[in-house]
Simulated assay, not measured.
Amino acid sequence: MENSITVCQDTEEVIDVIRRMITERSLYQNSDDAFYVMDMGYQVKMVDQWKRLLPKVYPYYAVKANPDPVLLQIFAKMNFGFDCASLHEIQTILNLNVQPSRIVYAQPHKQTSHLKYAAAVGVEMTVFDDENELYKIKKIAPNMRLLLRLCTKGLTDSITGPMADQIWLSTQETSHLLTLAKNLDLKVVGVR
């Protein structure tokens, strides 16, 4: 699949860009393949607004949401952190010359080889939501900082789609895990 980028004028309406793309693709490229339009200027404005309104909150972009290379490059240049759920996503972000300290390995149930890779390349933070993950992290990457995956009351009932089958901890289940993390001498630094 070929990635191509078309830069449009600010004066052009989005619907006009879409119509033009459809016409060009069907007439000149004989293609009915899907495409998408992304207003990068809008993305930059929203990030600037975020930074202005929430200056103490450091954003982490979930790569799986949209791994478009141009979008990732822009967010990398804007000093985003990255939420990576796989070895491939970590590699993609590191290839943008992003420091590993700006990556959280956010896979709740990590493959051992992927956790080893993350630790080896300097990723400093990961997530957990069960005992097995704590023991795995202790064995493979004991110096990583940890985020407890937590769900607030009632939220699990409203989650649908691909997120519905993920494990989300209630506040009642966290005490045991935090005690275990402390006993294993692991550093829990926040929640996700």
Rank of each mutant, 00 (worst) to 15 (best):
Glu12Pro: 00
Lys56Leu: 15
Val14Asp: 05
Ala65Glu: 02
Leu72Trp: 04
Ile22His: 11
Asp68Gln: 10
Val70Pro: 00
Tyr58Ser: 08
Arg19Ala: 13
Tyr42Ile: 04
Val57Lys: 04
Leu27Ile: 13
Glu12Cys: 10
Val70His: 02
Tyr42Trp: 12
Gly41Asn: 15
Ile18Phe: 00
Pro67Phe: 01
Val17Gly: 00
Met21Gly: 02
Lys64Phe: 03
Asp68Ile: 08
Met46Asn: 12
Asp33Gly: 08
Asp48Trp: 06
Asp16Glu: 09
Asn30Trp: 01
Phe35Ile: 00
Gly41Phe: 01
Val57Met: 09
Pro59Thr: 08
Val14Arg: 08
Asp33Ile: 07
Ala76Glu: 07
Lys51Ser: 09
Lys77Asn: 11
Asn30Arg: 02
Met78Tyr: 04
Val63Thr: 12
Asn79Ser: 15
Asn30Gln: 06
Ile15Cys: 13
Met46Lys: 14
Trp50Gly: 04
Pro55His: 03
Gly41Ser: 11
Val47Trp: 06
Ile22Phe: 03
Ile74Gln: 05
Val47Leu: 04
Ile74Thr: 10
Asp32Pro: 04
Val44Gln: 05
Asn30Leu: 05
Val47Asp: 10
Ile74Leu: 09
Val44Arg: 10
Asp16Gln: 09
Asp68Glu: 13
Gln49Arg: 15
Tyr42Gly: 00
Asn79Thr: 07
Leu53Lys: 15
Val47Tyr: 05
Lys77Ile: 06
Leu53Ala: 11
Arg20Val: 00
Ile22Trp: 03
Ala65Met: 04
Ser31Cys: 06
Thr11Phe: 02
Pro55Asn: 01
Gln29Glu: 15
Arg20Pro: 03
Leu27Tyr: 12
Tyr60Gln: 01
Arg25Gln: 15
Gln43Ser: 11
Arg25Ile: 11
Tyr42Arg: 10
Val17Phe: 05
Gln43His: 14
Tyr58Leu: 05
Gly41Gln: 11
Leu53Tyr: 02
Ile22Asp: 09
Met46Cys: 14
Pro69Cys: 06
Tyr60Val: 04
Glu12Asn: 08
Tyr60Cys: 01
Thr11Gln: 07
Lys77Phe: 03
